[in-house]
Simulated assay, not measured.
Amino acid sequence: MLIITGYIHVDPTHLAQFLKELKALASTTRRRSGSIAYDAAVEDSRSGRLLIAERWVDQAALSAHLQAADTLAFVSRWRGKMRSDVRKYDAWNERDIMDR
């Protein structure tokens, strides 16, 4: 499994439009093959900071999402209007949070 997490920063004056477009993208993305979770939360609306959390079954599923027309269009529309500190992590030892 792959975990994608980190922060996206958007100018607060564009945050409402960004969230509207992200919500539409998320709705489609959650139905994609290999998508386990795709979520974003506004952490600080005054600074335009969002927390991103995604889970994918494998790199092929993530790559298909990143190459999908709607994903590419979203990134193109927001290029230069957002900055990202989002990273990808491999998760090889998944278990319940209370397990040691």
Rank of each mutant, 00 (worst) to 15 (best):
M1H: 02
M1W: 02
L2E: 06
I4C: 11
I4K: 10
T5L: 12
G6P: 06
Y7W: 12
Y7P: 01
I8D: 08
I8Q: 09
V10E: 06
D11K: 15
P12V: 04
T13N: 05
H14R: 15
H14A: 10
H14W: 13
L15Y: 00
L15S: 00
A16R: 05
Q17N: 06
Q17C: 07
F18G: 03
F18R: 08
F18A: 08
L19K: 10
K20D: 01
K20P: 02
E21W: 12
E21P: 03
L22Q: 14
L22N: 10
L22W: 14
A24F: 12
L25G: 00
L25I: 00
L25R: 03
A26C: 08
A26Q: 04
S27A: 06
S27D: 09
S27Y: 01
S27R: 09
T28P: 01
T29P: 05
R30P: 03
R30A: 07
S33N: 06
G34E: 02
G34R: 00
I36F: 03
I36P: 00
A37Q: 03
A37L: 13
Y38M: 11
A41F: 13
V42T: 14
V42C: 07
V42D: 04
E43G: 08
E43Q: 12
E43R: 15
D44Y: 04
D44S: 11
R49F: 04
R49I: 05
L50V: 09
L51C: 13
I52G: 00
A53N: 04
E54T: 07
E54M: 02
R55D: 01
R55V: 07
W56A: 05
V57Y: 05
D58K: 04
D58V: 05
D58Q: 03
D58N: 14
Q59T: 06
A61K: 08
L62G: 08
L62T: 04
S63A: 14
L66D: 13
L66I: 08
Q67R: 09
A69D: 14
V75S: 09
S76C: 10
S76F: 05
R77F: 05
K81V: 06
K81W: 03
K81E: 07
M82K: 12
R83T: 09
D85Y: 10
V86M: 08
Y89W: 10
D90P: 06
D90A: 15
D90W: 10
A91T: 01
W92V: 11
W92Y: 14
W92P: 11
N93H: 15
D96K: 02
I97E: 00
D99W: 00
R100Q: 12
R100A: 13
R100D: 13
